[in-house]
Amino acid sequence: MAEALVKEKPSLGYHEEKTDTVIRLVSTRKRKKEYQVTGIQDIASENNWKAWLYLAPVIILVAVFLLYPLVNTMFIAFTENYKYATGEYDGFTINNFGVILGLTPTTSGAVVTDFVDYAIPNTFLIVFLTVPVSTLLALIIAVALNSIKWFQKFLQTVFFLPYVTNGIAIGMVFSVIFDQQGVINYIFGTDTAWVFGATRAMGFVPLCIYIVWSSIPFKILVLLSGLQGIDKQYYQAAQIDAAGHAKTLWRITVPLLSPQIMYLLVTSFIGAFKEYTSIVALFNGPGTSGKYGVPNMYTIVYYIYDNLSTSTSYAAAAAVFLFAIILIFTFLQFAVSKTRVHY
């Protein structure tokens, strides 16, 4: 036994020798790559000051038009009666958030609840109605487009058309289509006011249809390019296992598309929170009764733009509020994506 133990030692030494040669092999490979990289870095690092020269225009513009405004808006949100023309304000307060949320009265003494009554619920309704519907519809269309042979390119272009349009122009077309004497009421034999003089609920129908219509093209494009990147072998394997169409879609296509879907959800959630132009285009004002009526179609962003010059502090508070909501949602989505998205 003792002899055997002793005999094992040289074998260990042999083993060591072996690993030694392996390491040497790897190290030569590494050196080759490192040599290439350092070559460029040597040249590039000489131009250190030049790099800042190249970046100067962008840095100045980002500082003036992106970073400074961000800080300044947060600052304004905590000032009282900020006047944008002169930059004057009457001290600091946190009442602005109370005012927009309808909790504290404004300086003139009235409690304004447009923001809580219309802006917040409308914005959330738009987000949770249009984003799931448009994403699901885009997914179905993309899968269908991917499975056909004839006219695929042509139909792909047709579905992309709404992207290359002027939002205001097409929004006005929708308000003509949904006019009380328009084609929708004519086809369905109804006499509903969808746009002008509509109730809040009815006003949401053309609005959501318009938003879905205009947001679908981009989603189809992204999903289609994702679909074309999926390896055909997965589908052949599914076919051998006799998996049905629905099962193939939910078990293979959707999980493999999850990065694209995730990207679309994050961007379209943010986009839907900022809906504004669609309302201007459709209703020509903040509500279904025109420019000066009840603002029952208010969104958070509409509120911001409406109050920008008259009560800047409230607009800034609303902007900070929106920023916080978007941040929370984005982080929530990233947290979900960690468990659900397969990269």
Binding site: Q41, A44, S45, N47, N48, K50, A51, W52, Y54, L55, V62, F65, L66, L67, Y68, P69, L70, N72, T73, I76, Y84, G87, I270, F273, K274, V301, I304, Y305, L308, S309, T312, A315, A316, A319, V320, L322, F323, I326, L327, T330
Partner: peptide
């Protein structure tokens, strides 16, 4: 080009994409 603080600066740039434009509009107007 290689320069000190390239990656942090780029990250900072990317992070600004998260900020909604409405935050900027108010101050940019001013």
């Amino acid at each position: 080009l290689k320069f000190k603080g390239r990656e942090p600066l780029f990250m900072l740039f990317l992070m600004t994409m998260m900020i909604p434009g409405e935050m900027m509009v108010i101050s940019n107007f001013i």
